[in-house]
Design a protein around this nucleic acid. Structure first.
Length: 479
DNA sequence: AAAAAAG
C-alpha cells in the first residue's frame, strides 16, 4: 500500500529536452521546447509511443506547489503551457473577471499546465492533483465558465463538492470570476432550511453536495440533459469507496447516458493509490497530472507534536498555551473526531470563559453558514471543527491548526494520511506560513504520528506541553 | 466517525 515504484516513463534516466535527437518531429519539438521553457522544466518526449506521452519533471515551482509531477496527455494534441491568461481561449469578460475582480496577474503552474488541456478541443477528461492552495479552484471555475453559453437558460456545468461550506465557497469564487460574463449560477446551499426549490433550474452553472443534487435530479428540478462539463472538487473524497463513490458514480453514469461526450474533471490535492486506480477506471482516457506523495508535504507549514501526559492535559494545552497566545496572531482551527466532541469541547471551553465557536455536520445549515461567516469576518478567532472543514476551506488568516484528535480510521489506530494533509493545509494559505500542533497522548497516538511522519517523509519536531516560551516562539514563526 | 440529507 506504500509505493508502486516509479510511474511509467520515469524508470529511464531523464533527458534534458535540449538533448532530444534532431529527428524529433518539428512540431512536437517546438511545442515541447516552448513548454519546457515556459515552465522551466525538463521534458522527455516520446513521439514513438502508441499514445503520445509527455512526461515532465518540474525543476521549479515550489511556490505554486508543484515540484515534481507526472503529466500524461492522451491525445494527439500537443498542449503548450500558458504563461499568461491571454494565451488561453478565455473570453474578454472572463479575463476582466480575472484581472479586475480577482486581481490575478498570471496563471499558477497548475493552471498553466491544465487549462490548455481542459480548454482545447476535443475537451478531454482530466485528473489533476496539485497541492493545497495551488489554485485548483481557479482551474475548474474557468473551465466551467468557458464551457457554458449564457444565452441558454439551462444548466450546462455541474460541480460536486463534499460539504456545504465548499459548495458556498466555490459558488462565491465562480460568481466573482464570472462577474462580467452574464453567466448565472446556483447552489444547493442557496436553498434555505425548510424551503425547497420546485421550479426547473435555469442557471447555467450548478454547484452542489450529494444529497440535494440527487433530490434535485430525481424531482426534475435539475435537468441533466444539457450538462457538458462535470467537475468533482476533492475528487478522491468524492470517489472514496466507503463514502460518496456510489452517488458520484451514479451521477456520472446518468449524465454520460444523456451526453457521452460530457467532460469530466477530477481535482484534488490527494489521490491515494487505490482511489487513483478507481479514478483512472472512471476516466480511462483522461489527461493526468500527479504529484508524488513525498512531494506533497507542505514545507510552508511547521508541524509539531505536543506530547501530553494524558487526555486532560490536552484541554490544559488549549487553555494555557494555545488560547492565550494564538488569538492575537491569526486564526485557529481545532480539529476533533466527532460531532459530540466538537460540542463538548466547545462548551467546556466556553464554560471557563475561553471564547470560541464550533461547527459540525449535525448543525442546521443556517447555523453553519453563520459560524463560518463570523470566522471569515474575523469576528471569531478560534473555531472547533470536525472534518467538515478539513478539506478546501479557505480562510487566509488561519495560521494555526490544532489536531486535538488525530485523524484516524474507525479502528482508532490507522492514520488517515490524506485527512492529515488536508487539515494542516487549512493554515498557510495563499503563500503565508502556518503552524500545526498534533496533540499526542498515549501509545496509540504515538504510533499514529510516527506513521504520518514516515508516510510523508517529514520530520515532525516536538514542543513540550508545558513549555509556554516554546509555544510563543513557535507561534511567532507563523507571522 | 465524518461528510449529504426532501434521507
Amino acid at each position: 500500500m506504500d509505493d508502486d515504484g516509479p510511474p511509467p516513463g520515469f524508470e529511464q534516466p531523464q533527458k534534458h529536452w535540449a538533448d532530444e535527437e534532431p529527428d524529433t518531429p518539428p512540431g512536437l519539438g517546438i511545442e515541447a521546447d516552448r513548454l519546457a521553457q515556459d515552465l522551466k522544466l525538463i521534458a522527455k518526449v516520446e513521439p514513438d509511443a502508441d499514445e503520445p506521452d509527455l512526461t515532465l519533471r518540474l525543476q521549479e515551482g515550489l511556490r505554486d506547489g508543484i515540484e515534481e509531477a507526472r503529466i500524461t496527455t492522451q491525445s494527439d494534441t500537443i498542449y503548450a503551457s500558458a504563461a499568461t491568461f491571454e494565451e488561453l481561449p478565455l473570453t474578454p469578460e472572463i479575463l476582466q473577471g480575472l484581472y479586475v475582480e480577482m486581481k490575478f496577474e498570471r496563471p499558477s503552474k497548475i493552471q498553466a499546465i491544465t487549462l490548455p488541456m481542459v480548454l482545447t478541443p476535443p475537451f478531454k477528461d482530466l485528473i489533476a492533483q496539485a497541492h493545497n492552495g495551488s489554485g485548483k479552484t481557479t482551474c475548474f471555475v474557468l473551465s466551467m465558465l468557458s464551457r457554458v453559453d449564457p444565452g441558454i437558460n439551462k444548466p450546462q456545468a455541474l460541480c460536486m463538492c463534499p460539504t456545504r461550506e465548499l459548495v458556498t465557497q466555490n459558488l462565491n469564487v465562480l460568481n466573482r470570476m464570472g462577474k462580467y460574463t452574464g453567466i448565472r449560477a446556483t447552489s444547493t446551499a442557496s436553498e434555505t432550511d425548510g424551503k425547497f426549490r420546485k421550479d426547473p433550474i435555469t442557471e447555467q452553472v450548478v454547484i452542489g453536495a450529494h444529497g440535494k443534487l440527487k433530490t434535485w435530479a430525481s424531482k426534475r428540478v435539475l435537468s441533466l440533459e444539457t450538462i457538458n462539463i462535470l467537475v468533482f472538487d476533492e475528487a478522491d473524497e468524492m470517489l472514496k469507496a466507503d463514502g460518496f463513490a456510489d452517488d458520484s458514480v451514479r451521477l456520472i453514469k446518468e449524465i454520460r447516458k444523456r451526453n457521452p461526450k460530457v467532460q469530466l474533471l477530477l481535482f484534488s490535492a490527494t489521490f491515494n493509490d487505490s482511489v487513483k486506480r478507481f479514478a483512472m477506471q472512471i476516466a480511462p482516457t483522461a489527461n493526468q497530472l500527479f504529484v508524488a506523495k513525498e512531494e506533497l508535504s507542505l514545507d510552508v507549514i511547521a508541524q509539531y507534536n505536543v506530547r501530553c501526559p494524558n487526555r486532560d492535559a490536552k484541554v490544559r494545552v488549549l487553555k494555557e498555551m494555545i488560547f492565550p497566545n494564538c488569538e492575537r496572531l491569526g486564526q485557529t482551527i481545532i480539529f476533533v473526531r466527532s460531532r459530540d466532541q466538537a460540542k463538548d469541547l466547545h462548551s467546556a471551553m466556553e464554560k471557563d470563559g475561553y471564547k470560541c465557536t464550533s461547527i459540525q455536520g449535525g448543525m442546521e445549515g443556517s447555523d453553519r453558514d453563520r459560524v463560518v461567516q463570523e470566522f471569515r469576518d474575523g469576528i471569531t478567532k478560534i473555531l472547533i471543527s470536525t472534518d467538515v472543514l478539513s478539506r478546501g476551506f479557505d480562510v487566509s488568516q488561519v495560521t494555526l491548526v490544532v489536531n486535538y484528535d488525530l485523524p484516524v480510521e474507525r479502528d482508532q489506530r490507522t492514520p488517515q494520511y490524506e485527512t492529515y494533509l488536508h487539515r494542516i493545509g487549512r493554515s498557510g494559505r495563499f503563500g503565508r506560513k502556518g503552524v500545526a500542533f498534533n496533540l499526542v497522548s498515549g501509545f496509540e497516538d504515538e504510533k499514529v504520528v510516527e506513521a504520518i511522519s514516515a508516510y510523508f517523509h517529514k520530520k515532525i519536531e516536538e514542543v513540550q506541553w508545558d513549555d509556554e516560551d516554546k509555544f510563543i516562539d513557535v507561534l511567532q514563526k507563523s507571522l
